[in-house]
Measured scan of single mutants.
Amino acid sequence: NQASVVANQLIPINTALTLVMMRSEVVTPVGIPAKDIPRLVSMQVNRAVPLGTTLMPDMVKGYA
């Protein structure tokens, strides 16, 4: 199973992502692939993302 990107903490709306905010985990449904973590750094979330939430492409500005 492919690992997805999961929030390692509460990420407030419009926050630029950093490595410490994200972890990889095998979850259902599948979200953004963990291999894309380096690409996500500095991108902003367009909503508040609670701890443990799988990041989906529509949550990150400029990803999709």
Rank of each mutant, 00 (worst) to 15 (best):
L10H: 07
R39N: 06
L10P: 09
Y63G: 03
V27T: 11
G31H: 01
N8T: 14
T15S: 07
V5C: 06
N46W: 13
M59L: 06
E25K: 05
R23W: 03
V30M: 11
G31Q: 02
T28N: 13
L17G: 00
P29H: 12
V26H: 12
P50Y: 12
V26T: 09
R39K: 14
V49L: 09
V6A: 04
V41Q: 08
V30Y: 15
D36V: 05
T54C: 04
T18V: 05
V30K: 04
L40P: 01
A48C: 13
M22G: 01
M59W: 08
G52P: 00
P50F: 14
V5H: 00
M22F: 11
T53F: 14
L40M: 09
Q2D: 15
A34Q: 05
M22L: 08
P50D: 15
V30A: 12
P29D: 12
M59P: 01
G31M: 02
S24F: 11
R47D: 07
L51N: 09
A48Q: 14
R47C: 05
G62M: 14
M43I: 03
V5P: 01
M43Q: 05
V45T: 13
Q44R: 11
S24L: 07
K35H: 15
R23H: 04
K61D: 06
E25T: 11
T15H: 07
V6H: 02
M59Y: 10
L19N: 05
R23P: 01
R39F: 06
P50G: 09
P38S: 13
G62Y: 13
I11S: 01
A3N: 13
G62I: 05
V49K: 00
M56Q: 13
P38L: 07
D36A: 05
L55Y: 01
P12M: 14
T15E: 06
K61Y: 09
V30H: 14
N46G: 11
N46C: 15
L17F: 02
Y63R: 03
Y63W: 13
N46E: 13
Q2T: 13
G31F: 01
Q9A: 11
T53P: 01
K35Q: 15
T28K: 04
L40D: 00
P12N: 10
T18N: 04
E25S: 06
I13V: 13
Q2H: 15
L40G: 01
I32W: 02
N14I: 03
D36N: 06
V27A: 06
P12H: 09
I32Q: 00
P57Y: 15
A7N: 01
Q44N: 05
P57N: 14
V27H: 03
T28A: 06
V20E: 05
V30L: 12
L40H: 00
Q2P: 15
A48E: 09
Q2W: 13
N1G: 15
L19T: 04
T15P: 01
P38V: 08
N1D: 15
N1R: 03
P33L: 13
G31I: 02
L55D: 00
P29G: 04
V41L: 14
D58Y: 12
A7C: 06
G31E: 00
P57I: 10
P33W: 11
L51K: 09
S4G: 05
T53E: 09
L10W: 10
T54I: 11
G31P: 01
Q2I: 14
G31Y: 01
P38M: 06
P38K: 05
M21N: 05
S4Y: 03
M56L: 12
